[in-house]
Design a protein around this nucleic acid. Structure first.
Length: 226
DNA sequence: GCGACAG
DNA sequence: ATCTTGTCGC
């Protein structure tokens, strides 16, 4: 797939914020244009003892969820974790692993936010903009926004509101288990995002492609650093 | 100044 | 995120 170079990654925090502000207007939230046949879950694992990072991508058929391909790579990260600037830490490595894929995904499921972000450009939105692919943010905890408590049953949801705008949904993917924060990243609506995430979950809290990517990078890290 | 804060 | 054993609830 084509990966666009929109800006440098080796930037200061202030420059990163400026980049996000300038890119935000390019985020398009609309109904999917294409049928989704391949979904990719991406995740990054970091080391506590060094700057090493492991990025992974798991491609699965949709909606059947048969495994199609999985790849991982090791890299080195200089940018620290800063709330609101996660993409500057993780996306460079995610792009490297995406470059290894033989199968081009139709949509990305990301561990983090989409437009539910202080400047409307969470990791999922940023990745979708760069790849020009639909993307969905699936975060385990809140970054911004307010919401009403979510009911107990699977499928229950509550709007995530931020500055008077609906930026996502808080979704219960498994009964009695903590809900996750779904926000459209790029090229998909919140309703479709929820629909897709529910089709990718069942037995576990997180969407299967993300969960598989998480296991993949943790396995890789454990094998490499003991 | 204080509290909040994806991974 | 990472570190880290047992334990409580569906």
């Amino acid at each position: 797939m084509k990966i666009r170079t929109l800006h440098p990654w080796d930037v200061t925090f202030q420059e990163a914020v400026k980049i996000q502000e300038s890119l935000q207007s390019q985020i398009v939230i609309r109904k999917l244009k294409q049928k989704i046949k391949l979904v990719a879950g991406v995740d990054v694992s970091t080391s506590r003892r060094s700057h090493a990072v492991w990025a992974g991508a798991v491609v699965m058929a949709f909606p059947g969820l048969m495994m199609v391909e999985e790849r991982w790579i090791r890299g080195s990260s200089d940018f620290p974790y800063v709330p609101g600037l996660l993409s500057f830490r993780e996306i460079p490595h995610i792009l490297n692993v995406l470059g290894q894929l033989k199968n081009e995904p139709d949509l990305f499921l990301c561990d983090g936010q989409g437009i539910a972000h202080p400047r409307g450009l969470g990791l999922a939105s940023h990745l979708g903009l760069i790849t020009q692919k639909p993307s969905i943010g699936c975060a385990k905890t809140r970054l911004v926004g307010e919401y009403a408590q979510v009911e107990y049953d699977r499928g229950s949801r509550s709007d995530l509101l931020y500055r008077g705008r609906k930026v996502g949904m808080v979704l219960r993917t498994k009964k009695g288990v903590k809900p996750i924060f779904i926000s459209p990243g790029y090229g998909v609506t919140a309703g479709q995002a929820v629909e897709i995430v529910l089709k990718c979950t069942g037995k576990y809290r997180l969407p299967e492609p993300i969960r598989k990517a998480h296991l993949l990078v943790n396995r890789a890290r454990r094998e490499e650093e003991g």
